[in-house]
């Protein structure tokens, strides 16, 4: 406890954080907050709406693409599907590596490959998510009930059939609800990656901040917040419906 506090104090010193600086900055922040009122689109509402649609498209397509890539990897990394230890460990490690690279770094890499624009954003979200999705999927598969698999085996089913009829029906609802959850969080990520030039509403947000148009910045932030809140509500409903169907 004492050590933790000592590191904290040292951190404050080394990062050059002093009460006066914080106080001064808070004053500035107050001024900025004042300038943000009232939020206004500055006549670019349709442009921003289009960008918001683009952001949603990036999030949706990125999630779907990640799911497509993650599904086979998830099965490969699951202990009860692939018995080979080498494959299992290798799959896990490479997934961990992919997961540790942030979506912004992926965006910068993909911009080099496919150029500036939303397509790079889609690929960035897909790459950064397929690691975590595959990991979650493999965990869901590992915790699945063995009995249906044994049942399929007992009635003469082959290896692929045990996966199709024994495992898939158990894990599909879990996958679907996880995908919805990722879509939610990707809407937020998709906002950010625009800042490095990968399309969507983040690009406008960054530009308006650069030219200190605070009213439009506030408007854009509100647009994002409203969208995220709406998606939260819809996806919570959908998730409940999906999980509920499994219970029935």
């Amino acid at each position: 406890m004492a050590a933790a506090l000592a590191v904290y104090a040292a951190g404050l010193m080394m990062l050059d954080i002093s009460p006066t600086r914080v106080w001064h900055g808070l004053g500035q922040l107050g001024t900025i907050a004042g300038l943000m009122l009232p939020p206004s689109a500055g006549g670019h509402f349709l442009l921003y709406l289009d960008a918001l649609g683009q952001t949603l498209s990036i999030a949706f397509l990125g999630t779907m693409l990640a799911a497509g890539v993650a599904l086979p990897f998830g099965f490969l990394a699951a202990r009860n599907v692939v018995a080979n230890r080498m494959v299992h460990v290798l799959a896990r490690r490479s997934l961990d590596t992919v997961r540790s690279i942030d979506v912004l770094v992926w965006a910068l890499i993909w911009i080099n490959v496919v150029g500036l624009g939303p397509f790079a954003g889609v690929l960035a979200i897909a790459s950064s998510d397929c690691g975590s999705l595959a990991k979650l999927m493999s965990e869901a598969i590992e915790t699945a009930d063995r009995k249906p698999v044994e049942g399929v085996l007992a009635s003469g089913g082959g290896r692929l059939m045990t996966i199709r009829f024994g495992l898939v029906p158990q894990v599909l609802p879990i996958f679907a609800s996880q995908l919805l959850y990722f879509f939610e969080s990707n809407t937020r990520s998709a906002t950010i990656i625009g800042i490095v030039g990968a399309g969507g509403i983040g690009l406008h947000l960054y530009e308006q901040m650069r030219v200190l148009e605070w009213q439009e910045v506030a408007f854009l932030i509100l647009m994002v917040l409203a969208t995220v809140a709406a998606i939260d509500v819809v996806s919570r409903r959908l998730r409940l419906a999906i999980i509920g169907r499994r219970g029935a």
């Binding site: 498209s57 397509l61 939303p118």
Partner: peptide, 8 residues
């Protein structure tokens, strides 16, 4: 969304 995200 493929159209929206200018997938090429």
């Amino acid at each position: 969304s493929a159209v929206g995200a200018e997938v090429r």
